[in-house]
């Protein structure tokens, strides 16, 4: 009898790989929390003027900041370029000579990594913010938390797919650091890390929702804080998740073909 699919084991391995670096997790957590304090101070000052800005009150911005600070680690907004390095060093040959679907295998590992980040990078700052500052908890906790979980998984998939594409560019560029640093610079603003996307003018926001960026960070936060139009937001995430995964497969197939045909 053959054993089951290897992918659950790869999810576990993704989790385990992070869990061996507890000190790094704690250091990241500390940094995220410090930046969270700075951001929440600024945003609380903004909403204090009027009591509420674009539907955010004090509890709302606090929830926005602490969820955001945690989610940047969960979705890994700023990729580490691990795959890119493997392409450059040629270790990708090992990944390609395994009897697995490479994209699915890496996604599985990334989901495991994200699971670890939920426990060690998301939960603590949220607890910290919720205990010490005004915090908007969901009115309807059970369905909202379920939806939040689904939305976070989709956010990880979208973020993974974008990082995957950026890393694959190494097959053509040899060094993906340039494109990745542009992405890392813009990502925070476009995904809704700096300020809530609701603060943006309508026209600009419409434009942003034509990109996958809001799906990475703003959408799960909106789900948690029970803002309007959740069905559309989740559909937006799902659509981008599927489209970007499909694009990733296509590009991987091209990249592999290039490697296999042209060598390298």
């Amino acid at each position: 009898m053959l054993s089951a699919s290897p992918y659950p084991a790869l999810v576990r391995a993704g989790y385990r790989r992070r869990s061996v670096y507890l000190t790094a997790s704690l250091a990241g957590l500390f940094t995220n929390t410090v930046f969270g304090l700075l951001r929440v101070a600024v945003l609380l000052a903004v909403v204090a003027q009027t009591g509420s800005t674009a539907g955010y009150d004090a509890g709302g911005v606090s929830a926005f900041v602490w969820l955001g600070q945690g989610l940047i680690a969960v979705v890994m907004l700023w990729g580490d370029g691990e795959l890119s390095d493997r392409v450059r060093s040629g270790d990708i040959a090992i990944d390609l000579s395994r009897p697995w679907d490479l994209q699915l295998a890496l996604l599985a590992g990334d989901l495991g990594r994200a699971g670890h980040a939920v426990l060690f990078r998301l939960a603590p700052p949220v607890a910290f913010g919720a205990l010490l500052l005004p915090f908007r908890w969901p009115d309807d906790p059970v369905p909202t938390l379920l939806l939040f979980t689904a939305s976070t998984v989709l956010a990880v998939v979208v973020s993974f797919s974008l990082r995957f594409l950026l890393d694959l560019s190494s097959f053509w560029l040899l060094d993906s650091r340039g494109v990745r640093s542009v992405y890392n610079g813009l990502g925070g603003v476009l995904a809704g890390l700096t300020v809530p996307l609701a603060f943006f003018p309508d026209a600009l926001r419409g434009l942003l929702y034509a990109t996958p960026f809001p799906a990475i960070l703003q959408t799960p936060i909106d789900v948690f804080t029970e803002r309007d139009g959740l069905a559309e937001l989740l559909a937006h995430q799902l659509l981008w998740a599927v489209a970007l995964l499909a694009l990733g497969r296509l590009v991987l197939a091209r990249a592999t073909r290039k490697l296999v045909v042209q060598g390298g």
Binding site: L2, P6, A9, L10, R98, P99
Partner: peptide, 10 residues
């Protein structure tokens, strides 16, 4: 353990 899963070895 991972290789066992990847190669689906009994």
């Amino acid at each position: 353990t991972l290789l066992r899963a990847i190669h689906r070895v009994e």
